[in-house]
Design a binder for these strands. Structure first.
Length: 104
DNA sequence: CGAATGACCAAGC
DNA sequence: GGCTTGGCCATTC
């Protein structure tokens, strides 16, 4: 299983109404410091996973894709019942998804 | 085919 | 305690 496939698998596994971080996904995929590539993988597979549920460690939307702007991500998250502040910040204490075990 | 780059995180001064 | 640096894989040019 490639790192890319694991990342996509994990992102697709994020429960409805929850969000997680690049670092968490990278760690679950086997790279505790590979958060950078999670962004890269999602960038090249933007249509294969619910990328809007993935944000950075500070609960901030760091998306740079012009085709999928922050405003769209905010709307998608709010559609799932997640509160997003006007500064594109999400409360990770309430909506963060940090599984203890890997269901693979 | 070699080199550069990409939506991050945490350790080290 | 804030700023700088290193590091990881896949994809594109």
């Amino acid at each position: 299983m490639n790192f890319k496939d694991k990342v996509l698998e994990i992102v697709q596994k994020i429960p409805y109404g929850k969000v997680t971080t690049y670092g968490t996904i990278a760690a679950l995929a086997g790279l505790p410091r590979g958060g950078r590539f999670v962004g890269g993988v999602l960038h090249f597979n933007i249509d294969d996973a619910p990328w809007h549920r993935v944000i950075n460690r500070h609960g901030f939307i760091s998306t740079k894709c012009l085709d999928h702007p922050k405003s769209l991500q905010k709307a998608l998250l709010e559609q799932e019942g997640i509160e997003v502040s006007r500064d594109f910040m999400v409360n990770l204490d309430r909506y963060g998804w940090f599984p203890y075990v890997d269901y693979s």
